[in-house]
Design a protein around this nucleic acid. Structure first.
Length: 211
DNA sequence: ATCCCGAGGG
DNA sequence: CCCTCTGGAT
């Protein structure tokens, strides 16, 4: 990626989404961890609807560990994948209590040992809660990165993460992560991208649509 | 019908 | 690598 192109992309994202930020409502690392886990295949708005009651009922890792699956499922009923998420939450609570004294760990290696927590979720928690420069690669970040030429078509998500980290300014990683997501959600959508109003079409590696 | 800030298992 | 889990919004 030519530096000039990258600067143009960053400038455009700053114009479109000057204050892109984390939309998941949370007030501590455990809540963030849970909210990100719940967001898989689900909109943030849907997650924010169930978390107030969930967080009130289960304020600590021990509470998740002790929870009954039926109760947990009740809180998550309106989310996609709610049964597997309920199972993961309980197991995650147990693992936190057993291995980390009930606290959310601060490293990628430790976080990804937790049931239901993969690299993407861990990166969000590290970046959002612990100030560790991170580039979480979700479906949006992966798609945008490939379309704009930050990565190749058949790169894995880990490849994409490495390439983004190699080229993007470290102090903007989390902001760009959020801006990629907003850009992917509202402009460079998976199915019907708004190529017509996109100022970056000339950089795109994919055939343009809706022109 | 299609998509949503994925992870785990086969 | 591919499949499954899953309801709600649009």
């Amino acid at each position: 990626m030519i530096a000039k192109k990258q600067d143009r992309i960053i400038a455009e994202l700053n114009t479109l989404f000057p204050d892109a930020h984390c939309v998941l409502v949370h007030s501590n690392p455990l809540e963030m961890l849970v909210a990100v886990m719940l967001s898989a295949q689900t909109t943030d708005a849907a997650v924010n609807k169930v978390t107030p009651a969930l967080f009130a009922a289960y304020p600590t890792a021990q509470d998740y560990a002790d929870a009954s699956l039926e109760d947990l499922e009740g809180y998550l009923k309106r989310l996609g994948l709610y049964r597997s998420k309920a199972r993961s939450l309980k197991k995650m609570g147990q693992a936190l209590v057993e291995h980390f004294d009930g606290e959310v760990p601060h490293t990628m290696k430790q976080l990804t040992t937790l049931p239901g927590v993969g690299r993407k979720t861990a990166n969000v928690v590290l970046g959002e809660c612990f100030g560790v420069p991170s580039v979480p690669v979700d479906t949006h970040v992966e798609r945008i990165s490939k379309r704009l030429g930050f990565a190749k078509r058949d790169d894995t998500v880990l490849d994409v993460e490495r390439k983004l980290k190699r080229t993007l300014p470290r102090d903007s990683w989390m902001k760009l992560h959020h801006q990629f997501i907003f850009f992917g959600r509202y402009v460079c959508k998976a199915q019907n991208p708004k190529c017509k109003e996109c100022h970056l079409v000339d950089l795109c590696k994919e055939p343009h649509k809706n022109l």
